[in-house]
């Protein structure tokens, strides 16, 4: 019994001594940090997503104040942050348009066919290992939510078997882009509403067979687009160049499979 008390007492005393010593040392060796770092840190999103390349938001805040990183280094922050930053540091910053991630697949459970029933672990990478996934379209979203789990902002939901980005929550950090085994997610300026929500490189009939809303490569949109923003990607698959797109919406009207959609109105 005595031994236990002795042991507990000694460890306790050591803990207290170290604690007091450390708190005293913290005062003696206190280093005055640039208070702007703390203010920049508060202005940052604080998700520590690491998309900027620095170890977390603390690292980026220090780098911005030291002038090592530019004011728009945080891909997850929009103009709001840049303005705040300009306020804190008294500098001018470049404006960038806020981007959002977009899942380029529209083939919900009802609209696309399944190859087999998947009962494995809830992970797209795992599902994709088995014959390219359980969807009959090997390019489509598997809907097991790998992207939703990596998203630090809770901006991804799985709706009817397809991942959808909640644009007002998305900060375009790009973590989902790396997580998606099908490489279906892209960063697009938030103001561009029209996207070809399909990445199927199969020929038209094959795409049509596995999914009702796939791009069959009919090139109608390419011919219709008044500014020439749509092109075929070397496969029967249309692609809208967001830099050229003027949001006119002509392509949606001619698309026979509704693969092109106005994303704002769709839940995506």
């Amino acid at each position: 019994m005595n031994e236990i008390i002795l042991a507990a007492a000694i460890i306790g005393i050591m803990g207290i001594v170290f604690g007091i010593g450390l708190s005293y040392a913290a005062k003696v060796f206190h280093v005055k940090e640039d208070e702007r770092i703390a203010r920049v840190r508060v202005a940052l999103p604080g998700a520590n997503c690491g998309a900027c390349g620095y170890p977390g938001c603390d690292g980026l805040a220090a780098a911005i104040v030291e002038g090592k990183a530019s004011g728009n280094a945080c891909p997850a922050s929009g103009d709001e942050f840049t303005e705040k930053l300009a306020d804190i540091l008294g500098i001018k910053t470049e404006k960038t348009e806020r981007k959002t991630a977009r899942v380029l697949c529209n083939g919900t459970c009802a609209l696309s066919r399944a190859k087999y029933q998947y009962y494995g672990i809830e992970d797209c990478s795992a599902a994709a290992q088995i014959f390219g996934g359980h969807k009959s379209c090997k390019y489509g979203c598997l809907g097991n939510g790998t992207c939703a789990r990596v998203c630090p902002f809770d901006a991804i939901a799985i709706v009817e078997g397809v991942a959808v980005i909640l644009q007002d929550k998305c900060r375009a950090c790009g973590l989902c882009i790396d997580a998606c085994p099908k490489k279906l997610i892209e960063l697009i300026p938030v103001s561009k509403n029209y996207s070809v929500l399909c990445r199927s490189k199969d020929k038209g009939p094959a795409t049509k067979k596995s999914c009702d809303v796939g791009c069959i490569g009919c090139t109608k949109c390419v011919k219709t687009c008044p500014v020439g923003a749509i092109s075929m990607e070397g496969a029967p698959l249309a692609k809208i160049d967001p830099e050229k797109c003027t949001n006119c919406g002509e392509c949606v009207k001619v698309c026979p499979t509704t693969a092109i959609r106005k994303v704002e109105t769709f839940c995506n």
């Binding site: 042991a7 460890i11 010593g21 450390l22 040392a25 913290a26 060796f29 280093v31």
Partner: peptide, 24 residues
């Protein structure tokens, strides 16, 4: 017999302390 737990305590405190000293 308290060697392991004591050493961990010492190392943790030491590293903290060293960090402060170096920072200063």
């Amino acid at each position: 017999f308290l060697q392991t737990i004591t050493f961990i305590l010492v190392i943790a405190a030491l590293v903290q302390f060293v960090e402060m000293v170096i920072k200063k």
